[in-house]
Nucleic acid binder design. Structure first.
Lengths: 339, 339
DNA sequence: CTGAAAGCGCTTACAG
DNA sequence: CTGAAAGCGCTTACAG
């Protein structure tokens, strides 16, 4: 006995239909004890006749929580983001929470608008892969009881929980690997210097060079936007310019992709270690050596932290670092060319 | 003047603080006209002092909509799903809607539980990449006014809007391409036969063979789960068995990946056309020829359809088919081996 | 065992 | 220009 399009029966309708009070319907719907079985049966019959389904949004308004969390990504469409989402979704599901997702598209304003829109919905908590350089706008929200955990990059201008990859350590390991294979002149192609992950990876590069007592020529370092044109120009300058390098560390997957598309498919190539793993990387010739992040661990740690905050943990802001892993596949084991 | 942790000020608090009525606060918050500027100023000052932010969930309860839609995917972590998400998110944002996402993990029960959980939240609409074989459970929801659009695969056992790739046409084009390159014995490695996309792609395969008046040996067709072990066994049987083929159509990206990992990297290989594009496919040796789907168009069309339903379109169920595109890159242009 | 009243935080419809 | 009352669909706290 479904009703007209767009009008859903309410508990009140069920109560009238069953000839009982509203509270009795609520008891039956929520499986509370203390309802005579005959009464409960009448209520259930009314529910079926009317096709009643409880409105959880209304229930949650009264309850004070929304049983939902939000994940604000850079771009849900990229593989790293979607791996984070999967991990966060898994933990949210364990806690009976539904998940909002949204993408900032690296736009500070959009990040802020989306984050505040989620807070206005009163999500129980928020996980943010931040792009902005000032997150003070979230302070009132977290003070009011909406915990915020930062993921992949730390918060700017506020103290907050953050779950990050060991960016410096990963880059250091990657560069040390190249040094071990005989390279002395190693180039670094990175993202914009203002981006935390990029800066950390550059720090790891410098650290590895210093560990090996190798000088760094600043012309070997190229940071900027990750569009193919700029990356391609960087490759040419670094490999064929005045101070040529014999190996490259590319500091994220977009840069690595652009470099791979630009390198000659035949003839000598610089050694290459990419930050971030890529599907099919093992099937390239040579295979692509990478410093792989662990997005599943990153996402899960962020979600766990969020739920611990929701459970009442009011300790100091935490910073969790997830290890990276060097995966040698060929491109990083090419030796320096003679000369 | 923020209040204690976990207690947010309400409009009522603001009204008291400003010494005005509740409705006046509502007017100011919503930018309605007809408030004396001095009064509005007092209200704004109170809002700032208290750190008031409107609770959108409460507002939406009164309004009757939730300004949110849900996207139920197979697995948010895979590239196809995440490309769909990006497209859906873009259209949702145009309509001021937030997006819930969830993954069924190919589990019928989880699909149902999640879909109904979203409906219980009263999302304005639902987009489902279905995995179940009976969607009658959604009938009461759509009858009550929650439109549902199916994406990538059609609904089972109910009439509903669906946005699909031209699976049969794509496979037909791929196989015709192999035939044009001289192949007569072509294998098909597909997903479980019960899955709509798999069945359609097989239909396209048969159609192309029939178009060219080529006989099909049923031993050339292998369908089943997409785990590497089964796919690997299929490759061996098809290429080295009693009725060997000279070319393969792999009917989705997981299968293609398993096949690529199994084929010898040197020595003769069967020609290969994969359904679904893969990142780096162009950098393999040989490049991977694919029948590419257009997830951006699929997701956008599904979201547009959903919003048209929300705008009042009550026409018959629609079925939208998005074209696929053959991208030759080398593996599909290998000729049949002598013999 | 059962239900009427009040309330979650807003908006709607109406009256001054 | 302003606000008191009723209501969105539930749950909570209480009384019978």
């Amino acid at each position: 006995m479904s009703r007209g399009y767009g009008t859903r029966p309410t508990m009140k309708d069920v109560a009238v239909e069953a000839g009982v009070g509203l509270k009795t319907v609520s008891r039956v719907v929520n499986g509370e004890s203390g309802v005579a079985s005959a009464t409960a049966e009448r209520v259930r019959a009314a529910i079926d006749r009317l096709g009643f389904r409880r409105n959880d949004s209304a229930r949650l308004l009264r309850t004070g929580r929304t049983a939902s969390i939000a994940l604000l990504l850079e771009d849900i469409g990229d593989p790293f983001s979607s791996a984070l989402s999967r991990a966060v979704e898994g933990v949210a599901a364990e806690h009976g929470c539904l998940l909002f997702t949204g993408s900032s598209a690296e736009d500070q304003r959009r990040e802020r608008d989306l984050a505040l829109a989620f807070c206005a919905r009163r999500v129980d908590g928020l996980i943010v892969v931040p792009t902005g350089d000032d997150h003070r706008y979230l302070l009132p929200e977290s003070a009011a009881g909406t915990p915020v955990v930062f993921l992949d990059r730390p918060a700017a201008a506020i103290e907050a929980d953050a779950v990050l990859s060991d960016n410096a350590g990963g880059a250091r390991t990657g560069v040390a690997h190249l040094i071990r294979h005989g390279h002395r002149r190693i180039g670094f192609i990175g993202d914009l210097a203002r981006i935390h992950t990029s800066a950390e990876r550059l720090r790891g590069y410098r650290r590895a060079m210093a560990d090996a007592a190798l000088p760094v020529d600043e012309r070997w370092i190229d940071t900027g936007p990750t569009d193919a044109a700029r990356v391609t120009a960087a490759v040419d300058r670094l490999t064929r310019g005045a101070a040529p390098v014999t190996a490259l560390l590319t500091a994220n997957n977009r840069i690595t992709l652009a470099v791979l598309h630009h390198l000659p498919s035949d003839g000598p190539r610089p050694a290459l270690v990419g930050f971030d793993d890529l599907e099919l990387a093992d099937l390239l010739t040579p295979g692509l050596t990478v410093v792989a992040q662990d997005p599943a661990a990153l996402g899960a740690a962020a979600a766990r932290t969020l739920f611990e905050r929701l459970a009442g943990d009011t300790g100091a802001a935490r910073r969790i670092e997830i290890p990276t892993r060097l995966i040698p596949r060929g491109s990083g084991e090419i030796g320096p060319r003679a000369g």
